[in-house]
Design a protein around this nucleic acid. Structure first.
Lengths: 202, 202
DNA sequence: ACTTCTATTGAACGTACGGTCAATGAGGAG
DNA sequence: CTCCTCATTGACCGTACGTTCAATAGAAGT
């Protein structure tokens, strides 16, 4: 029945949550205005009243996913690790565990990422997000470089941070397609073996 | 005009090539039977005459992409590298360069991979392909483990191979969304710094 | 109480899709 | 030459989609 109202923000959030549910369940290919409206118990017209276009709904959903994804945060238990290299490893471990714990969100993330190949607006936002994520790794990367400059000759902090992000994304790629066959602990043990315990603290 | 005929294999290949073109250009979301038919200069009915269903066309296209993707091949210039660890690094370097050289194919690969989240048949095929790729890395991984067993305690050859594959995929993820900001050489230099020149040959 | 405003509805429109099928004509077999 | 096979066509069907819009009813102001 028309006339029932709700605050703009509340409605948008309600719709975005429904869109998130539909997108996580059926993928972006199965995300239609009708499905979102049905999941939110609203009419199809209302969805397009608040988000003028499906494209704008998609972009709003992407922003919603990126905003509500826990940003890389340096907790005390990681900051108190003496060796920068071990600190980087601990950070890698926590991020991998975090990603594996939210498979639906990561699935949506990669779905958007694939859509970014075609859709310029989405691609730009994904680029910005990956840049942001890489920048969050930079402080620790700089500390690693400062500790062992001769070992990383010619490597910038951005480059090292990029490698760390690449590790994590690669881990996500594999855990997403084969969740059961992917053992985080063994993955980390192999990484640790590759990196080696060269920390000067030893 | 009806009646014009061609061999079954030739037509299928012609259609698959058109499908590859359309998929690489517009993404799987924009790959329609009509577009494929138009690109192949055929009627829409003929496409569905040779591939009974769009789904079967998609699966055939996936197999086509996977088959025509150069399988990991161990060339002499890599096999003659003395240190197994350096050999693994060289292999990583070559694979990253290869992937960066074929962005359209990798884009399609990841598009299929994202579709695998929803589509069981595609997911199974992608899993098999990733397994195959990982297995190709196993011989070198075993050599690395045999050379420095104490360094990789608790790590299996599969696990180490998985890290290598994950690394490459992560590299692809980043280079795909930001081709210009991704410097392979610096990436590899950082990896080499992390891995270190611990080879016993030194 | 009355008007104004606007969030909300559901039907409707045009489009594009996957899939079907009767008609057709080239090519090989007899 | 004739006939039969079947690859090929293009119109056609039903469906689902994104989007539009006149109608409606609750909230708010006077």
């Amino acid at each position: 029945m028309p006339g029932r109202k709700a605050s703009e923000d509340a409605r948008r959030l309600q719709i975005l949550r429904a869109a998130y549910y539909v997108g996580a369940r059926r993928g972006l290919a199965g995300l239609t205005v009708r499905h979102v409206a049905a999941k939110a118990d609203l009419s199809t017209g209302l969805v397009l009243f608040h988000f003028k276009t499906k494209e704008q709904l998609l972009i709003a959903l992407l922003d919603f996913v990126l905003e509500t994804t826990t940003v890389l945060h340096l907790t005390d238990d990681i900051l108190c690790i003496a060796s920068p290299l071990d600190r980087l490893l601990a950070l890698l471990a926590r991020e991998m565990n975090r990603l594996s714990a939210e498979p639906r969100r990561i699935r949506l993330f990669f779905d958007f990422w694939a859509m970014g190949f075609t859709h310029a607006g989405i691609r730009t936002r994904m680029q910005a997000e990956l840049d942001r994520y890489r920048e969050a790794f930079r402080p620790i990367a700089e500390q690693v470089l400062a500790t062992e400059p001769e070992r990383f000759a010619g490597v910038s902090a951005e480059g090292l941070a990029g490698v760390a992000v690449g590790f994590i994304k690669g881990c996500a790629v594999q855990s997403m397609i084969d969740p059961r066959g992917f053992d985080i602990d063994e993955f980390l043990a192999a990484v640790q073996g590759l990196v080696g315990q060269l920390a000067p603290s030893a």
